[in-house]
Every structure is written in structure tokens, then in C-alpha cells.
Design a protein around this nucleic acid. Structure first.
Lengths: 224, 224
DNA sequence: CGACATGTAATGTAGCCGCAATCTTTGGCA
DNA sequence: TGCCAAAGATTGCGGCTACATTACATGTCG
């Protein structure tokens, strides 16, 4: 599962991100409404999670704007304001669920799953690029029409790249996507994974390749 | 406002063209993907509007092809297929907005205006000048429609110049753009990079050139 | 115990990039 | 206008380094 988290409080954000990552929920984190809007335009998410009070405005305004544009992804609103009135405001604006702080991480996860399940038959079913297709729900990858097995780490790297085809994904992004925070990585483990992924890609006849961007990271793009 | 309309159904096309004309929107109308591709290469448009099902193929394939060539103009996709899955496909392929038939002309016009308005933001993704296009997100440069490889330092120099076309960028600015602070540069390394960039530019048929400004720096400008 | 995943390390390798040598252009000045 | 010094342009060369690949050890799960 893949979510966009819009949260400006550093502590809350960090705790959430860590908890989500342990559950294999991939979260993009932004701190402003403007950034969230931009990410929602280009990214593909299962659920959007946002705070109400944000440095550049009111979260519900973003909800309204997205819904006005028929943005189809379910939205869950976090807030420190737990009163019923506010809750109604949240739902009226077009959000799909509402969660008052403080809350148990487990409850958040349960609600995310619920939203994903009942979600308007959304989208993130597959990440497609070239003849590659990644299914984030089953963690299956198919290349040129047939399923190719990838071990966990390799899968996570490739999924991270597929989330942003044609765009550079930094080494640190990739490492974050693959490893829990506490895991320390000492050497060229990432390089080794890339190498193994490449081997599988060519072996399966993928129409995409992974290129290194020196000193920065990697990107996946159409094969020359 | 000036748009390119790719629509093969005669009735729909005629109705749209008339409505657009009343709103002082200049529309070029083509019926095939091939024609649209040709027009996009030579014409200058604010928005490209296209249908999905077309006599010579699938409209989204054109979108993908244009985006692969870094074609910077916002694209709005019309379709009779209104399901969310299709919507996501459309956005994934690189389109900027999506409109399901049937729709009110007013809504189309509103979306066109929106795309035009945020158009600069889109081309902000790309730095365009002449037939050069720089994509800072992938560090890719395309010249006359095809991608040209630039090594890291050359890319950084060219990107810095492309951020201020027709204006002088000082040597120190360029060096700052290319080198980390601690890196000291002892000789004419910058000149060497400029030279190598120039060679690639002429080789790729760029309609721009880099001129030296004695004792100050360099600038990029339209080729004589 | 066997198969597989995955971090680590050793080794290979490509190609970037700085340097310097040489050639060309420019502009100041008489 | 002609000359010269300085700035810029070009190009080959070689070292460096990040990346690639492979083998191996360790861990893990059945």
C-alpha cells in the first residue's frame, strides 16, 4: 500500500512514517499543501492522509480542491480538533474518514486498510511502465506478460523506481524505501540489488532499464 | 489561447470547434495521431486536446510518445470511457487532465483555462529554449526531439545556462553551479566543458548556441 | 538440512573530468 | 590598420572514482 502523508509536525510525521514503514506501507511525506497538491498530481496513491492545520493553510481546503478536480483517491483527515462539529466539516469537505489525535497507530492502519478496500475501486492496482507491471498489493511483478519472481528487497527497490519512472530516485530514497530506519547499511548492498534486478530484467526481456546517475541515484526508463 | 484538437468524430469535432471559436480559442483540428504528431512538432499551442480512440491508434500512446520527447505542452484527454481505471491510465501516461464524455462545454473551457494558467508550472518542469529542453528531474536533455546524453558536469553547466537564456551567466556562477564548495578548480576546466557541450549541440542540430562574453561569462541564445 | 535471500568484500571497468599544450579570437592601442 | 597580449577554444591524455559484477559467508525459514 502506498499513501501520501501531509503532516507538518516533525515528531508526529517521523513516528507515523516509521510505524507505516514497518507495516510495509510506503509513504511519501510532504509538509505543505502546495507540495501535497503537486505530489497528488503526479503520484499514484491508495490513500491520502493529511493534517488539518498546516503552515500554508487549512487541510480541508485541499480536500475540497482535490474533490472538485474529481481526484479519486480516498482521503483520511487527521486532526487535533476532535469535536463533532469539526468532524462534520471534514466529511462535508469530501474526506472519506476522520481520525482525532491522539490515536493508536493500529487504528490508523485499520482505517487505511478499510479505505483501501472500499476505495472507489482505485487505481494503484498496477504501476505500469513499458512492458513492466508492478502490483503493489500482491507484490507481484510481471514483465512482458509473465510473472517474474523478485525477492523482497529487490522488489522494494524496483517498486520505488517504478513509482517515478523517468525520474531520478536518490540513493537515500531507495535505501529508505527498502530498509527500516534502524537497519544500518554498510556498503554497496543497494548496488548489489540493482545488479541482480538488472539481470532479471534483461533475462525477462524488459523494455526498460535502470540507469545510474553518478553521485545521485538511479532511474528507470525506456530501453534504448 | 491556441489549442490543437485531435478528434476524429465529425459531429463532436464540429461542435467543439464552434464552441471554442465563440470563446476566441484558436483551434487547429486534426483527425489522426500522425497528423497531430506532425502539428505538435511545428506548431505552438497552449494546450493539446485529444480523444482516446482514434482511427490510427490509441491517443494515450501519442501522449506517452510526446512526453518521452519532453514535449512540454499540457495535454487534456477526452474519452467516452469514464471509469476510474481509465482515468488513471490517462494520467499515468503523462496527460495533465482528463475529461469524460459527455461533458459541458463550459467545463472543458474551465479546464483549458486551468491548464493554461498552470502551464508555466508545467513547463517549469522543463527548461525550454529553442529546440532544447532540459528536464531537471531526470537530468535528461533533448535536442530537436531526441534525447542527448550529457555527463554530469556538462549537464550542470547547460542547465545553469538554460535557466537564464539570453542572459549572461558569470563564470563564478557557473562554477558554483557545477562544483561543490570545497572543490577548487585550477585551470580552464570550465572552458573545456563548454567546448564539449558546444560540440554536442551542433552535432544534435540545436537551434541555440553558447557565446562567450569576454571577462565575464557565457550565455545561451538562439543560433544565428 | 537445503534452498534462498541478502549483506559484505574483492575485483573489474568505464568514462568523467581536470590538466596542459596548442591553436584561435578578440580588443586595446598606437 | 596592424600588432600584441590576453582570453578563449579545442583536444588528447591519464588518473581517479563511482558504479558493476561476482563470489562468498551468513542468516533464515521450510
Amino acid at each position: 500500500m502506498r499513501i501520501l502523508l501531509l503532516e507538518d509536525e516533525p515528531e508526529m510525521a517521523r513516528a507515523l512514517l516509521e510505524a507505516l514503514r514497518r507495516r510495509d506501507v510506503l509513504a511519501d511525506h510532504v509538509r505543505t499543501i502546495a507540495d501535497a497538491d503537486a505530489m497528488a498530481r503526479v503520484g499514484t496513491y491508495d490513500v491520502l492522509v493529511l493534517d488539518r492545520r498546516l503552515p500554508d493553510g487549512e487541510g480541508l481546503d485541499l480536500v475540497a480542491a482535490l474533490r472538485q478536480r474529481k481526484y479519486p483517491v480516498p482521503i483520511l483527515v487527521l486532526t487535533a480538533l476532535g469535536s463533532i462539529d469539526h468532524r462534520v466539516d471534514g466529511l462535508d469537505s469530501g474526506a472519506d474518514d476522520y481520525l482525532a489525535k491522539p490515536f493508536a497507530i493500529e487504528e490508523l492502519l485499520a482505517r487505511l486498510r478499510a479505505l483501501q478496500r472500499r476505495g472507489p475501486a482505485i487505481s494503484d492496482k498496477y504501476l505500469n511502465f513499458g512492458n513492466l507491471s508492478v502490483d503493489p498489493r500482491s507484490n507481484e511483478i510481471s514483465i512482458a506478460g509473465s510473472v517474474v519472481e523478485f525477492p523482497r528487497r529487490e522488489y522494494l527497490v524496483l517498486e520505488a523506481l517504478m513509482r517515478r519512472p523517468n525520474r531520478i530516485v536518490t540513493r537515500s530514497n531507495l535505501i529508505e524505501a527498502v530498509y527500516a530506519l534502524e537497519d544500518e547499511i554498510g556498503s554497496n548492498a543497494l548496488d548489489a540489488h540493482i545488479s541482480r534486478i538488472r539481470k532479471k530484467l534483461v533475462q525477462a526481456g524488459a523494455a526498460a532499464e535502470i540507469r545510474a546517475v553518478r553521485n545521485i541515484g538511479y532511474l528507470i526508463r525506456a530501453k534504448a
